[in-house]
């Protein structure tokens, strides 16, 4: 277990899709919140979500007034010929007082480190830096202070990477939606809809999603492809191709990924032991109810661990996709 001094550096990083979501996360016990502008510069570019410039300034001030850090995600990849949108985002986030920028595009990272050398930079999970060499490159070349590790590593791999990455910090996801691909490299959504999380900030854009009820059966399709049929009372998941149920070799099954959420609450002690600095909750697209419940539960778990108490690992299941949870790649127990 970490020394009491080391506990001071453990951070719970919480999602804030809207100003109200940000206030909810701060009030629920987040050490830091992450949010993005209302455009293609962040990977949760959904209608009705995110912050305009004034909201961002007010949100960051709200967090700072309560001793909470605010991280701004500009974690999509710049489009040729339109890089000013991303550069303006960096400038405005710095001006708004962001404690760190979460970036993925190497060109944007170069711009941010040159234009704002004092600004703290984090490497987004979208950059898929899963090797010591990649982390060292971003740290040495651009002074990136923290890397959010892709959700494809085991706990042992995280331990090794965290050790070699020092003094660059590591951050890992502990709860929420999972992505089966090495982040930043998935083309399924682009193939079906022409839009992707990496470029336009949307996976399975809702403009291309259709739900149809046929009696008790719910059919979900993306870009005209039927991805799932849910029987009566069967738990549903997100309408993404990677979590679709398809027929292959005479069997109907989830070919790529089951519709489940990551819940690594029981792995927190191990991850802290590994030296991981920050624990991220996914879900900027989720509501205040989710944010309040998950942030409170994880903050309680961290506080319990710090004081040697027990953790409640069951209470989060209800909020998970498909109503079930997994430890994902951290344990790699799947088929």
């Amino acid at each position: 277990m970490k020394t009491p001094d080391a506990w001071k550096h453990v951070e719970l990083i919480c999602p804030a899709g809207t100003p109200a979501g940000l206030r909810t996360a701060v009030d629920a016990g987040a050490h830091a919140v992450y949010c993005g502008f209302r455009d293609e510069t962040n990977a949760r570019n959904f209608p009705g979500l995110n912050f305009d410039r004034a909201e961002m300034r007010a949100g960051i001030a709200y967090a700072h007034d309560r001793g909470v850090k605010a991280l701004v995600a500009l974690n999509t990849f710049m489009r040729a010929g339109e890089v000013d949108l991303w550069k303006r985002g960096v400038d405005d986030a710095v001006a708004a007082g962001a404690d760190a920028l979460i970036l993925a595009d190497v060109g944007l990272i170069a711009y941010a480190s040159r234009a704002h050398p004092k600004q703290r930079l984090h490497l987004s999970v979208q950059a898929a830096a899963a090797t010591a060499e990649a982390i060292a490159f971003y740290h040495e070349r651009f002074n990136v202070k923290r890397v959010v590790l892709p959700r494809v590593l085991t706990v042992d791999e995280i331990a090794k990477l965290t050790k070699t990455a020092r003094p660059c910090e590591t951050e890992v996801f502990v709860f929420g939606g999972l992505c089966v691909m090495a982040e930043g490299r998935c083309s399924l959504s682009s193939y079906a809809t022409g839009k992707s999380p990496n470029m336009t900030g949307v996976c399975s854009p809702p403009s291309h999603v259709d739900y149809r009820e046929d009696g008790d059966t719910l059919t979900a399709s993306v870009g005209g492809f039927t991805v799932e049929r849910f029987a009566k009372d069967e738990a549903a998941g997100y309408p993404t191709l990677c979590k679709g149920r398809f027929c292959s070799q005479g069997k109907t099954m989830h070919l790529f990924e089951d519709p489940v959420s990551l819940n690594a609450v029981e792995l927190l002690p191990k991850l802290i032991e590994c030296g991981v600095t920050a624990f991220k909750i996914e879900g900027r697209q989720r509501g205040r109810a989710y944010i309040a419940a998950v942030v409170k539960a994880f903050r309680r778990a961290l506080d319990s661990l710090e004081t040697g108490g027990a953790m409640d690992v069951e209470e989060l299941k209800r909020l998970t996709e498909g109503q079930s949870a997994t430890t994902g790649a951290y344990k790699k127990t799947w088929r």
Partner: peptide
């Protein structure tokens, strides 16, 4: 949470 209600049908 709207997503949770959707997941649970």
């Amino acid at each position: 949470d709207g997503d949770a209600l959707f997941f649970s049908r």
